[in-house]
Simulated assay, not measured.
Amino acid sequence: MKWAELEPSPDMVAALDAAGERPFDGTRADKNNWSNRFADACAVMVAKSVARHPVWSKFEVRPNPDGSGRESLTFVAGGDQKRVDVIASTLATGLQLGVSLKGMNFRDATSGNFDKNLTGRTYELQAEVSAIHGYQPQAFLVGLFFLPLASTQDKKSGASSFARAVAHLRARTGRLDPTLPSQLARCDAAAIALYVPGDPEDEAQRGAVRFLDVHDAPPHRGRPRVETTLTLGKVVDRWAVQRYEAAGKSIDYVAPEDD
């Protein structure tokens, strides 16, 4: 299957609709406002998938499908307030899953690339992860970056913005030991969401979206093959497996002796 053959995701179409018309020629404030609306809508999309999963569904997942419940997404850690876009938690167990969404949704006006703010977005993510891990070291925290599909082909040489974002996040993902202070700023998992915003340059249908775990290999430049990417449901399933194994609870069973 090719990207051009992908059916749009209804939830991604809804997120794009909620964000409104993309301000290509707008001010920085216009683009920031669009990105904030888009992130809020994407958080609802991710939370819906998390809430449907058999592992995470036993927890309280926020935000709610109607976008409410965001008041429970802000944590006070080390005197700072840090907001997580999607959470699965209970009052008794605390934060079990936290997903922080970051977006690089527009080309830089000078370079035409999408990764101008990659370092800044990464610093934001690390500050959130470090503060929350310092308060709840066992929490499983995920970084999820959203990039338009055009970010895979935005450079004539070197790694595309998409490939660079994968490498950037991979280097900051995975904790050897959650009790080590040196590991607090590292995500437990990370992924890139490649979506089609419906720009004139797009060669796929508006609302198509696929995900790449940062530990999977991206092309240096160009669109990844669809079969090497994941649906949102499969990404959420990976988080559940990784969280389960990280807690040291994974076990395989064999058939017992016949009676």
Rank of each mutant, 00 (worst) to 15 (best):
159 A>C: 02
190 A>M: 10
159 A>F: 02
157 S>P: 02
161 S>W: 07
104 M>D: 01
163 A>P: 00
117 N>C: 03
151 S>P: 06
140 F>A: 11
136 Q>Y: 04
118 L>W: 04
165 A>F: 00
145 F>D: 01
174 G>N: 07
138 Q>S: 11
168 H>G: 08
169 L>W: 08
185 A>C: 08
120 G>K: 07
115 D>G: 04
109 A>K: 15
162 F>M: 01
166 V>E: 05
162 F>Y: 13
108 D>T: 13
120 G>R: 08
181 P>V: 15
108 D>R: 13
146 F>G: 01
186 R>G: 00
120 G>H: 08
132 I>Q: 00
114 F>N: 04
192 I>M: 03
116 K>W: 09
112 G>E: 12
183 Q>D: 10
134 G>T: 11
173 T>E: 03
102 K>Q: 14
178 P>Q: 12
121 R>G: 14
169 L>R: 04
105 N>H: 15
112 G>M: 09
187 C>I: 11
170 R>Q: 13
122 T>Q: 13
118 L>A: 09
130 S>A: 15
119 T>S: 12
102 K>M: 10
177 D>C: 13
190 A>P: 08
172 R>I: 10
178 P>Y: 15
195 Y>R: 02
194 L>N: 01
137 P>H: 09
164 R>Y: 00
172 R>N: 12
180 L>E: 09
161 S>Y: 06
103 G>M: 02
157 S>W: 07
131 A>H: 00
135 Y>S: 13
145 F>Q: 09
183 Q>V: 06
187 C>V: 14
131 A>D: 02
106 F>Y: 11
147 L>I: 00
149 L>N: 07
184 L>S: 14
151 S>W: 02
180 L>V: 11
116 K>E: 14
183 Q>S: 13
164 R>V: 01
169 L>E: 05
122 T>E: 09
